[in-house]
């Protein structure tokens, strides 16, 4: 970088470069785009960043991201509060919501158990989940963790801590994704699909 580049611009490029998936060239392009855009547009971005840092927090009940605590899902009377979908990350809530099929509420674990990476049950929101179940009124816990070894371990752990409670524990189905081809499916996916087949 030439010394003649304004310090503010260099700083903006450096900040963009810290973002995931942004290299030096992309950072440079974004910085110049900001420079060329109107002041309102640029300040809109700046304010959006400030607001997200100032206002977004975890819901005290479900640990999803929210600006109002408890969140809109937890306080929605049309939701079936007796069915809790347990997910790893807040972005999983967005994806499940996009299906339009979930009428229950959520519980975000904020990760998964991964002893190899030093992530233990105490690092997640499992105690809060158990407390919700202990309070009563929960009929079903739908475990929607990822179908990876860590996600499955987390699911097994949840099942064990809820074993003493009168609550049904279910797991999202697995198998062939729509639009895929059997030719390219792995053995594990086919095993899941065969084991999880249902009447047609």
């Amino acid at each position: 970088m030439a010394d003649s580049t304004p310090t503010s611009l260099t700083r903006l490029m450096a900040e963009f470069e810290k973002l995931p998936g942004i290299g030096p060239r992309s950072a440079e392009r974004l910085a110049f785009h900001i420079l060329k855009s109107s002041k309102e547009e640029a300040m809109g971005l700046a304010h959006a960043i400030r607001d997200v840092k100032d206002n977004v927090r975890h819901c005290r009940i479900c640990y999803n991201l929210t600006e109002s605590d408890p969140c809109g899902i937890c306080t929605d009377p049309r939701r079936d509060a007796s069915r809790i979908f347990v997910v790893e990350q807040p972005k999983d809530v967005l994806l499940l919501e996009s299906t339009g099929l979930v009428r229950g509420v959520y519980h975000v674990l904020l990760g998964h158990i991964a002893p190899l990476d030093g992530i233990e049950p105490g690092d997640l929101t499992l105690d809060a989940l158990e407390s919700r179940v202990k309070k009563g009124g929960i009929a079903e816990i739908v475990i929607a963790t990822n179908p990876t070894l860590e996600g499955e371990s987390t699911a097994l752990h949840i099942k064990s801590i809820l074993a003493s409670h009168k609550v049904a524990v279910t797991r999202l189905a697995r198998g062939l994704p729509s639009g895929s081809q059997i030719e390219y499916a792995s053995r594990a996916v086919l095993q899941d699909a065969i084991e999880g087949r249902r009447e047609f």
């Binding site: 190899l116 990876t148 070894l149 860590e150 390219y184 499916a185 792995s186 594990a188 996916v189």
Partner: peptide
């Protein structure tokens, strides 16, 4: 096709 999992 389906990612790579631990202990696979």
């Amino acid at each position: 096709a389906t990612g790579i999992d631990l202990l696979e």
